[in-house]
Each structure stands twice: as C-alpha cells, then as structure tokens.
C-alpha cells in the first residue's frame, strides 16, 4: 500500500516562538520526547536563522506583521492558537501554517500537528512540482497551438485535421512538434515539409 507515511522526527529542529509560560514548557517537553531538537524563543529570530529549522511553532496571540517573509520553503509552520477572535485567525491564515494546535497545550495533539505539517509540506511540494510541469508544457504548447491555427487558416481545415497533418509531418521529418511548429511560425520551412502540410498531403 502506498500513501502518506509519518516520518521519524528524531533530530529534526523545532523552533518555538512563544512567551515563556506553561504552554511553551509543555510543548518543549512533548517535542523532546518525540526526538526533536528544540529551540525556544520569546520573539521571532531573524529569518535566516529560522530558515535552519525544520518546523516553526508560532504564537498567534502575540504575533504581528509578516515574520515569515523570506523564510526557506522547507520550513513547516504550526500555529499555536489561543484566542479564537477573527482578527487573530485572519493573521494566522495569512502566515499559511501547515497545521495548528489549540492552547492550552496538552499531552496529546502535538504529534498529530507535526504529522500534518510535514505531510502538508510534501503535498505542497508535489503540487508545486506538478504545476511547474504544467507550466512548462503550456509554454511548449503555445507554438504548437499557434501552428495548428495557421494550418487551419491556410488549408481551411478542422483543428483535428490540422493537428494530424502537423503530427504526420513531424514524424516524417523526425522533428518534434514544437520545433516544427516554431519553423512553421517563422516561415522557414523547407519545401518538402511544406508539401507535407498541404491539404491532403
């Protein structure tokens, strides 16, 4: 069976940005038990420092501004929520955390939040990689689509017919669709290939 797997958090670095109180002490203890190396701070350290962490737990009650601007994309964010006021929750959402924990911190919940945050980041990276592939493909498709339009216009044929003749010409001349399409658009197609693209060719 394939699917999400929860990694071991041993030796992962957790940065906890929260006032020094009971909640921070409890969270610190839970994270250490889960094998993480914990660094506690009252205020957000500079972004280059925070970027070394695998996961940052941040306080929503006292947070302000945009503390994570420029943070390495490999850092997972987990929000520590106290007051559930709309203003605070809006600020939390703006930080785009991968998971959240309600305060007071309890003996349960920390592991679930870690699992969520790590999984969400992987998912996010998968999605970003997929989007990048689509973007690339779309960029490459542009000349193909433009060439098809030109063939349709010149030969007064359907999109399907134009694409068939383009593909056939590419196969016959052993060139890629993109290369051939770019040549068509630049109007520097050798006569033999041009012949292949004529209606019925």
């Amino acid at each position: 069976m394939t699917g999400p797997r929860i990694p071991s958090f041993r030796n992962r670095h957790a940065l906890v940005v929260h006032p020094d109180d009971n909640d921070r002490r409890l969270l610190d203890g839970r994270l250490r038990r889960l094998g993480l190396v914990v660094h506690c701070h009252e205020n957000m350290p500079p972004v280059p420092v925070a970027s070394h962490a695998d996961v940052v737990f941040f306080d929503v009650d006292t947070g302000a501004g945009s503390p994570f601007e420029g943070l390495a994309p490999s850092v997972r964010l987990i929000a520590l929520v106290g007051a559930e006021t709309p203003g605070r929750l809006e600020w939390m959402l703006a930080q785009k955390p991968g998971a959240w924990l309600m305060k007071p911190i309890r003996s349960s919940g920390v592991y679930t939040a870690l699992a969520m945050a790590f999984q969400r980041l992987e998912q996010q990276h998968d999605t970003e990689r997929y989007l990048e592939r689509l973007r690339l493909r779309a960029r490459h498709r542009d000349p193909v689509e433009a060439a098809i339009m030109q063939i349709m216009h010149q030969n007064n044929c359907s999109e399907q017919e134009a694409f068939s003749s383009l593909r056939k010409a590419a196969m016959d001349t052993r060139s890629s669709l993109v290369t051939l399409s770019k040549s068509i658009l630049a109007d520097d197609l050798p006569p033999p290939q041009r012949g292949l693209l004529q209606r019925g060719g």
Binding site: D61, T62, A83, T85, P86, G87, R88, E90, W91
Partner: peptide, 9 residues
C-alpha cells in the same frame, strides 16, 4: 495586544 486588534477589526 489582542483587545485592541479585535476592537479595531
């Protein structure tokens, strides 16, 4: 702090 933020909101 929170009371101000929420009141302003």
């Amino acid at each position: 702090y929170i009371w101000t933020w929420e009141t302003a909101r």
